[in-house]
Design a protein around this nucleic acid. Structure first.
Lengths: 332, 332
DNA sequence: TTGTAAGCGTTATCAC
DNA sequence: GTGATAACGCTTACAA
């Protein structure tokens, strides 16, 4: 560092003590207006900026929240991040986004970074493959608040905020199963995640409760390419091909669309489609895709409230749910 | 922090000095195998983790790169980030992503965060509205290397890495203007950005050089919604509506698609479409959208090379360009 | 109103 | 091989 203004340098120039400079800069009441003015002017002139390492070392924590997501290029997470950033900024905190690339090992590295840097709090949507939760347990021991969102583990000892997944699956079934299609394919994410299990349960519970006569099949996929392949495989293996597809997320929908594209099917003539989405992607297509709306933004707001509760000392663990609603498009 | 293992605590338990513990943990040659073993075991047991604040304060910089982008939900940036993360991890660094929400004020806050935390280096794609470059100039004074990518300022005193924008505009024109359309609408981003100006120049230079007789019009938009509106407005204002649209990016294309959707036009029958993209989004549609491919991943790799050069002490400033190529889809 | 000094956790230099 | 000790830049009792 060539030109590195510090409290010490300022204090040397002004012949006052370091503490006076420190206090002056933070408008401490008992420092004279005159010294304040002189200190502030010189600080400005010298381009003084506090050294966060020193401040944080002293204070034992930083003013940065971390958000860890499997993939950043996701409109749902995008609106989630936006909500958290807004609220964080409001209380003078920053937000850093860490990407786990859907790799538990990278996820753990990111958690390590968070621990070493004693972030103010962590929001995590776990990867499809996360099984070992010990890195998350470690956070409690060093008092870093943790809120899982959207993709949450099944473990009950954590704070979690998620979409009312069961309901949204149920709602999807309600709309898709009362439509004309006779053969419905459910394309779901990783079936170890509670988000997947709940959405599927909601869907199939509706199916059974209403003694649906339609044919129902389920395939699982971890990412876009798998989703595409799963659909293609299913179509190849079944003579009577599905006439409707339920996709449980934007990501899955991308894969499904690629498959539909490959199969040269027309929506909704050849195939009906319903997805769960925050609503951005579905409106890009013609016809636009019908969807059950889940708001990443609202989830972000809710997560931040939980985060602040934990930071405020609330100890109880619980899971919050956010409701969803149906938006008809032209795909059914 | 409840349970906070430090070198001191370990040294107390073992009746050795702090320095010995420090050395043992980093396998310093001149500490006995026996002490090493004892120290490491206890460290493990106590869940010792180094305090990054202290380490960084000592070392005067951190092992974290920052990437600042206008919006995270962007497939081009996604692949850029992936490339940088790969390379960073390889040399033991982490990457944090900061979002400027296309707001210069937020961008500046993010830069401040980077300065205060003395990040190892910063990769920035600036917002559409960034005009004041002084926050970026400040970085040089405190020796934080800076590489602009994709959306770079026109200022020549910075290191920049970008797509060969002129060429890609030219290439787009080459393919779109030899197609059948008689009336072409260019939908461009913010026209103060060099990325916009160059792509447009490339396109129009081809147009003039080949004495094209087609009608050509240009509209500008800062974000998706503006792009949608700009297209709708243009269609409303012109009796002879365009039969082809050139979109300069994924983001613009989303807006254009929404407009096409609203106007109930069919691709390519009613309207032809060509975009510049990293290639993910265009293949989701039916027909898939023809595009000039720009690789975010390659740009990330190239940016990282530049970053390492700067970190290695190279002082010269320059701009690198990455070439692009054409991928025909069914939209023309 | 201002100054002194201890301490945050680590690394590195020197001495033994 | 190991231990003292200073230093990184800042905050905050406690003195003066």
């Amino acid at each position: 560092m060539r030109n590195n203004a510090t409290l010490k340098k300022i204090s040397d120039h002004l012949n006052v003590s370091i503490s006076t400079v420190s206090r002056a800069l933070k408008d401490h009441p008992d420092v004279s207006p005159d010294t304040k003015k002189r200190v502030k002017e010189l600080a400005m002139l010298m381009d003084y900026e506090p050294n966060a390492f020193a401040v944080n070392l002293r204070k034992k924590h930083s003013n940065v929240f971390a958000i860890i997501v499997p993939e950043i290029s996701n409109f749902f997470y995008h609106s989630f991040v936006q909500a958290v950033e807004e609220d964080a900024r409001r209380i003078g905190y920053s937000v850093m986004i860490l990407q786990s690339m859907n790799d538990p090992e990278v996820e753990e590295q990111n958690l390590r970074l968070c621990r070493h840097n004693h972030v103010a709090g962590i929001f995590v949507a776990i990867t499809n493959k996360t099984t070992d939760l010990t890195p998350f347990k470690k956070l409690e021991a060093i008092d870093i608040p943790l809120v899982f969102f959207d993709k949450v583990p099944t473990d009950d000892t954590f704070n979690k905020v998620s979409i009312a997944d069961y309901e949204s699956g149920w709602m999807a079934a309600e709309h898709l199963l009362t439509a004309t299609a006779k053969h419905v394919l459910l394309v779901m994410g990783n079936n170890k995640l509670s988000i997947t299990r709940r959405r599927e349960e909601g869907f199939t519970d509706y199916y059974h409760k209403h003694q649906c006569k339609k044919k129902l099949a389920v395939v699982y996929a971890d990412h876009i390419e798998e989703a595409r392949q799963a659909v293609l495989d299913y179509f190849a293996a079944n003579k009577n091909t599905p006439t409707a597809i339920f996709s449980m997320s934007d990501e899955i929908m991308c894969g499904v669309l690629k498959a539909i594209h490959t199969l040269k099917l027309q929506i909704p003539k050849d195939i009906q489609l319903l997805t769960i989405s925050n609503g951005f992607l579905p409106t890009l297509f013609t016809p636009d895709i019908s969807f059950v709306k889940t708001s990443g933004y609202d989830l972000g707001k809710l997560s931040f409230v939980r985060m602040q509760e934990i930071m405020g000392g609330k100890k109880f663990v619980r899971e919050n749910f956010l409701t969803s609603s149906y938006y008809p498009g032209g795909s059914m």
